[in-house]
């Protein structure tokens, strides 16, 4: 049986969407308060992490 290659881009985006979905869910349930002024920087950080670690995982696999 051959070695499977992990698709790092899908993995990174998947983790990002899970984190974003959990944050939105907690906001809707009034557990946390997602303020507009924090959203854009938070997304930039998240997408930056996806680009960084997606590429790193690609080279490692």
């Amino acid at each position: 049986m051959g070695e499977r290659r992990m698709n790092s881009v899908s993995l990174a985006w998947g983790l990002f969407f899970i984190a974003a979905g959990v944050a939105f869910l907690l906001d809707r349930l009034n557990v946390i308060d997602l303020r507009p002024e924090y959203l854009l920087p938070a997304f930039l950080i998240g997408i930056g992490l996806v680009v960084l670690f997606g590429g790193r995982l690609s080279r490692a696999s």
Partner: peptide, 14 residues
Amino acid sequence: LIVVGVGLVAAARW
């Protein structure tokens, strides 16, 4: 959105 994320993580192994 969480389901889409879980689907992507699960599909990434293929």
